[in-house]
């Protein structure tokens, strides 16, 4: 019987940790997996436990980026709802470029820390995925307070409720691409830094 957690889950963990931290942390997880979890819970549930721990590590690392990314969308929603405008061009530009900057930075930072280009793409994906959930919660929270006719009319004029709630979720692919670009620069910069 297999006594190792899935290799792909370990590879995923590697993307979110510094190389030196990965060695000791993955050792701790492996010891817990083999010694305490696998004998009691069986292979399937032990693998599920391991994956949950990896996701926990990943979430802790990308949560600040996800919160900032979601914050951009929730702030834009609040602005459109509470201070309606007919010219959305400037607001859209600010939202778009801030989001691009955040995803590039998240990708750069993750790749710099782990030394792997793939960490950037993973950070882009995880940031957008977590931000989608946070954004829905934030938007729903605002709607709980402001849902009178003028507010709903302003929301409809700015793109509608669907767009406000689910736009971040549609940005998964751009998130991966931008994270990967940031990751490419981050991993390259790290190599250069080591070489100097």
């Amino acid at each position: 019987m297999r006594t190792n957690p899935p290799a792909w889950a370990e590879a995923m963990l590697r993307l979110f940790l510094r190389p030196d931290v990965f060695l000791s942390t993955s050792g701790d997880l492996l010891e817990q997996y083999r010694d305490s979890i696998l004998p009691v819970r069986g292979l399937f549930r032990a693998d599920r436990w391991y994956l949950r721990q990896v996701l926990g590590f990943a979430l802790r690392k990308i949560l600040p980026w996800a919160a900032l990314f979601a914050g951009v969308f929730v702030a834009r929603f609040a602005l459109d709802m509470l201070h309606p405008t007919t010219d959305f061009h400037t607001r859209s530009q600010v939202t778009t470029y801030t989001s691009i900057g955040l995803l590039l930075t998240a990708g750069f930072w993750s790749a710099w820390r782990s030394g792997s280009f793939f960490a950037g793409a993973a950070a882009g994906f995880a940031t957008v995925a977590a931000a989608s959930v946070l954004s829905i919660a934030g938007t729903a929270g605002l709607l709980a307070f402001w849902h009178d006719a003028p507010a709903m009319s302003a929301i409809a004029a700015s793109g509608g409720l669907d767009e406000a709630l689910f736009l971040p979720a549609f940005l998964i692919v751009p998130g991966i691409v931008l994270g990967a670009i940031g990751g490419l620069v981050g991993a390259g910069a790290k190599r250069l830094w080591r070489a100097i």
Partner: peptide
């Protein structure tokens, strides 16, 4: 960092 053990596949503690 300290030495690893077989149950950790040699990964350091």
């Amino acid at each position: 960092l300290g030495a690893g053990t077989p149950i950790r596949s040699g990964r350091p503690r």
